[in-house]
Design a protein around this nucleic acid. Structure first.
Lengths: 137, 137
DNA sequence: CCATTTTTGGTACTTTCGTATGAGGGGTAA
DNA sequence: TTACCCCTCATACGAAAGTACCAAAAATGG
């Protein structure tokens, strides 16, 4: 919050300075009028982008930031997480095994452990829950 | 695509006109220099907001508007679509049958037909593809 | 080095999924 | 009325998925 106030104070100050500058430049010398306009344009373009970004971050919600903390919380290991991702891509156990260079048996073991940690019974449920928990995209 | 090109052409044209205007105003009359700067500022601020919005819509994703047209296009029937939704909720065929008051056999038939239309082999793939196609939330 | 966790792999079994095929009833448009 | 699609249900089979239980390398943390 403090950061936001400081940022916006800085922006307002900068904008006022810019206006003063443009006023001075345009009134007392005609040399760089296009430059002033260009600077104003760029600054306000960036401000528009910045404000839009801020608004999206605060108002809407963070669109799919993976919650690594929650993954740890659930005790999901690296390998299990990899497999979770493959499951969400719609791969079969056999295909996952082939991609990760392990046997289908191994994949099944991981999947079974994963389901216990996610408290689900099926891979479709696992995908749904994982997305709910923001642990996969 | 055509729309995007037209829009951006319009924007570029507008910007060029604005620059010409500012040049004329500032060079040949000193009356409205602040006004010109202000206009430029506002226009570019709006442009920044617009571009940010566009970027979010294209890059990130449209915030989940279901494409009913595409559902028809694929020839997916009402019942099949209902079942697709249940699948995405992680339900088994038996559970889907219970919820829709039909036998598991019927569900299987629908599921099989659905997979052909979606060109997938597994329910996890179906969910993934359906979300890609924006036909489910 | 020891304890623990992770990763790997297996057997055996049950359940669920998916396909093929057929079949009957209902609605709709040509 | 016929042709066509949708929904329903069924049998049968093969293919995945999932569970239980076990075991042994390999990595990790003290």
């Amino acid at each position: 919050m403090k950061k936001t106030i400081l940022t916006f104070s800085g922006i307002i100050f900068g904008v006022l300075a810019l206006f003063q500058l443009s006023h001075y430049q345009i009134t007392y010398s005609h040399l760089y009028s296009e430059v002033v306009v260009a600077i104003v344009a760029v600054v306000f373009l960036l401000m528009g982008l910045f404000i839009a970004k801020k608004k999206r971050q605060t108002a809407n919600e963070v669109p799919s930031t993976i919650d690594h903390h929650k993954i740890e919380n659930l005790g999901i290991s690296k390998r299990e997480y990899e497999i979770l991702q493959k499951i969400s891509e719609g791969l079969s156990n056999k295909e996952i095994g082939a991609r990760l260079f392990v046997s289908e048996h191994t994949v099944k073991t991981h999947v079974s452990n994963l389901f216990q940690k996610l408290e689900v019974k099926r891979r479709t449920q696992a995908v749904q829950k994982a997305k709910e928990l923001n642990i996969i995209a």
